[in-house]
Each structure stands twice: as C-alpha cells, then as structure tokens.
Write a protein that binds this DNA or RNA. Structure first.
Lengths: 212, 212
DNA sequence: GTCTATAGATTGATAGAC
DNA sequence: GTCTATCAATCTATAGAC
C-alpha cells in the first residue's frame, strides 16, 4: 500500500469524470489532478487509460451482477414453487432494482449509475464494449427468462422490445445519476423508489403490448 | 460557390463521423481528409468545430420539425372532427415516424438518425444541448398533446413516461442508424416499417400503463 | 511507489500567399 | 475560396531520479 489508497482515489475520480464528461473528454491530467495523485500513477497502477476504464466497471459490476443473478434465480424459484409462469414485470425488476438501488449506497455510486446509462446507450463504442464484456452472460439469461414470461411473443419481437426496455432504463439511469439537466425547467427528479416503479412499470407494459 | 459544393461535402462527412465516432473523437483533420477539402475550409465556412455541429443539426432538423409539427397538427384536427380524445399512439407516431422515415431518404440520412439517437441519450452534453436548441418548442407541444391523450395521468408521471419513451426511441434510432453491433450475434435489424411499429407500440403501451 | 521531466503525437485554429 | 505552413495547447505514455 501507499497513501490512504491512491488506487481507490483514482477509481473514484475516474468513475465520476467518465460518467459526467465521457471517456474521451476526460484526460488523465483531469483525473490525477482531482484525485491529488501524480500524473504517472494511473499508468503505474492500471497500465493505461483504457485499463482504468475496465477497472472502474469491474469494481462495481462484479458484486452487482452477483446480486442480479441471485435475484433472477429467486424469481425463477418462486414462480416454480407457485406453479405459475414468470411475469415480465418481476424479471425486469430483478434486473433494474439492484442497479438503481446502488444510488443509495453512497455518493460515488450515483456516478457509476450514470456511467452505466452512458454505456447502455452506446454513446461511446469503447465504453459500450468494455461494459458488455462484463454483462454478456446476464443478457443471455435475461432473454431466456423473458421468453418464458412471454411465450406467445415471437423471439424477434422479444429481442427488440428488450432493447427498447434497455433504452428506457438507460435513460432513467442517466436521470437518476444526475447526468441530465431537466429541459424547460421541469419538476425535480423523483425518489429512487418511484423511479424504479415507473421504469419497471413502463417497460413491463411495453413488453406485454399486444403483438401487431 | 467553389467546388461542386465544398460546404455540403463537409456537412455530409461531419454528419457521418459525428454520428459514428462522437463529436470529441472526431478531428477536423478526419473530416476534411474524408471530404477531400482543405483543413482550413471548416473554419472558413463555419467558423469553428462547434458551429459545424450546429449546422449539421440545422440542415436536417429544420425541414424535419416542420413535418413533425404538421403531423401533430393533423392528428389534433382529425381527433377534433371525429369528436374523440387524442390517442397516445397517434401522437407518438406523428413524432417518431417522420424521423425514422428519413432512413429511406438516402444513405446520408441514416447517419443523421444515429446522431439524433446519440443526442437524445445525452451521451455528449455539447451534442445534446445543440440538439435541444432545435427542439424546444416541439417538446412542449408534445407534452401538451400527450396530456390530452392521457388526462387521468398525473403530470409528473406523464413527464417521466415521455422520457422513457424518448429513451426507447433513441435506442431504436441508434440501431436503425447502424450505430450498434448486435450483441451475441443476434438477428439482423428489422425493416424501417417494422421498427416504427415496434417502437411506437412499445412506447404507447408503456405510456398507457395503469398508474401504480 | 511517487515524483519530475519530457518525449512524441495530435489537436483546433489562424496567418498570409495565391 | 483555397492552399501551405505553423502556432500554441493538449494529450497519453514513459524514462529515470529518489
């Protein structure tokens, strides 16, 4: 070890700046300056700017995905013991709720939420690819469970509706993370609780829409 | 005039590169190189890189917004003569369909669709602000008409659901513009027609979801 | 592990000849 | 209007002293 955690301070600041300004718009100087560490520390501890981005994702996504996986398993188990099919609403909630609840786990996490919103919306291809490398397995499981919940929906339609739900969720995450200014001086953001209910309700209704 | 339209060629190339790589990741040298014009031409014709971005939006958004406005007016008129309330589905379609139909108006337009998707998702704050400057009035009208279509929905809920719909639409636009690679080697993109129906159907169902 | 110093490349913008 | 040449700033990354 070194200082009261140089590595951690770099991760905290990088997370915030990548989220608020984007990856390309954030220089190593901005990161090391705000973290009050030396410019060379990033390359010493992480190897490169890209590897730093990967580390930012890895730190939060490893425990978060563990929790999401557990909740998806639980949803499956409950439906099985109750002898009923899965509901799209509970599957989506198992995915979305742990993510948005990160918001309550401290000020740093809200930046991460914003960063995930960014990655979900594919704003920056490098950010998106790095994010997807940590998400591949979960995405496949998600598609499978939603297929069980909506067996009448053609697989093609299912895929695209899930994309729309991810688009809506990504947008919600950017709001929750404080990444967007309200247009036209509108109302203040809702509570995390309300936002979860709103985006899950919206997405579930969209997924269950009658087939055209 | 000069060459067979130096200014137009710069706009075409800038539109494509801003859409595919992002604003910050695109250098003036990349633009002028691909457009086969001199490096100094951008500053001569537009003044700065930011002013070029504004011109890219202005070129397509002025006629597009005129059409969207006309369609929203038409939807209102039809509902009035038929003596029935507005439907959320037709309001959303009046907004979304002209945008996605740009896709058929030539290869250049598909890049613009992708760029709008980018701007909608707030990936880059400068791109988003520039885009919003061209959209302010239409957004207010949209919120008003959706309020008429869903009078039982609290104004707060309405606002957020519209945000989710915009998130879903932005995601759809990025797919339609060819901006995202399909994860897990999935199926090919649907036709524009199908995509319009899917995203309008999804968003309308989400907006009309029962209030929690 | 942390620091200074700097290499080496790239950027947006401009001056001035033609 | 177009061109060359270049400035001044910025960037990532690294070498080498401590």
């Amino acid at each position: 070890m070194s200082q009261p955690d140089t590595k951690e301070r770099i991760l905290d600041v990088a997370e915030e700046l990548f989220a608020r300004q984007g990856f390309h718009a954030t220089s190593l100087r901005a990161i090391t300056g705000a973290a009050e560490v030396n410019l060379a520390a990033v390359n010493y501890h992480f190897g490169s700017k890209e590897a730093l981005l990967d580390a930012v994702f890895e730190r939060r996504l490893t425990p978060l995905n563990r929790e999401r996986q557990a909740r998806l398993d639980a949803v499956q188990a409950v439906a099985a013991t109750e002898g009923r099919p899965l509901r799209a609403e509970e599957v989506l909630r198992a995915l979305i709720e742990p993510t948005l609840r990160l918001y309550e786990s401290g000020p740093g996490a809200s930046s991460f939420i914003l960063l995930v919103g960014r990655a979900l919306s594919g704003s920056d291809e490098l950010v998106r690819q790095t994010f997807l490398q940590h998400m591949g397995a979960l995405f496949a499981l998600l598609l499978d469970l939603l297929g069980q919940a909506l067996p009448q929906l053609p697989r093609n339609q299912l895929f695209w509706r899930l994309q729309f739900a991810l688009g809506a969720t990504g947008h919600a995450l950017r709001w929750a993370g404080g990444g967007l200014e309200l247009p036209g001086g509108f109302t203040q953001p809702p509570s995390v609780e309300e936002l979860i209910d709103m985006v899950v309700g919206f997405s579930a209704a969209g997924m269950e829409a009658p087939c055209p």
